[in-house]
């Protein structure tokens, strides 16, 4: 998440400075909206998450102690909101360290060995390709998806991701690896087909 040219003043926010709060919203609404969209895949749901994140941030500003950065704190609220909305649809989702998927090693061995890196650059820039990337993220289990979105799309460090999700760094790393391997498999299928198509043209 890119910080604004001038630092947001936490003191001004706490003092109830509306203009400073509007600067906070403008600085972070882009990344928060993107996170919500990647997590939920539906613009109206993403908008709900965006609004609830800043409503909660406003309500709880006084409790912000500055132990993590302002952006990590906002990501934490947004991640919770996104997962809560997903849970409404699928109540069995949990985000505890001991999620059963962490013990399951069977599904993660690579099965596709097509080298699609050599595809021409325009292949990766198409809107169809972008849709395939988004679709693949949507297919990840929610607990892996949130880790992947924070780390590899929003660019948080492992430590920041673990702070935002209240997970151990080990759990973050495990989920990240699984998410990345799963996405690689799915993209290998998609780009492998594109490679086939091109060779037949």
């Amino acid at each position: 998440m890119s910080e604004n040219k001038t630092e947001i003043s936490v003191e001004a926010l706490r003092a109830g400075d509306r203009e400073e709060f509007s600067r906070l919203v403008d600085t972070y609404s882009g990344p928060i909206y993107r996170l919500a969209l990647k997590m939920l895949g539906i613009p109206t749901d993403a908008e709900d998450v965006l609004q609830n994140t800043f409503l909660k941030a406003f309500q709880h500003l006084k409790e912000f102690e500055g132990r993590s950065s302002l952006s990590t704190w906002l990501y934490r609220i947004a991640s919770n909101e996104a997962l809560m909305l997903l849970r409404k649809h699928r109540p069995e989702i949990t985000l505890s360290d001991a999620a059963p998927e962490d013990d399951d090693n069977s599904d993660y061995s690579p099965a596709q060995f097509t080298d699609w890196c050599c595809l021409p650059e325009d292949e990766f820039l198409s809107s169809e390709s972008q849709a395939a990337l988004d679709r693949a993220v949507q297919h990840l289990p929610e607990t892996q998806r949130i880790v992947f979105v924070l780390r590899d799309i929003e660019g948080l460090s492992i430590q920041e991701t673990s702070e935002a999700l209240n997970l151990s760094e080990t759990a973050v790393k495990t989920r990240l690896l699984r998410a990345r391997l799963r996405l690689r498999e799915e993209l290998s299928t998609y780009y492998g087909e594109r490679l086939d198509k091109r060779s037949k043209e």
Binding site: D115, C117, F124, D152, R180, L181, S188
Partner: peptide, 9 residues
């Protein structure tokens, strides 16, 4: 391909 996957995102 794992590197490429991450860089595409």
């Amino acid at each position: 391909t794992l590197r490429k996957t991450i860089s595409l995102y």
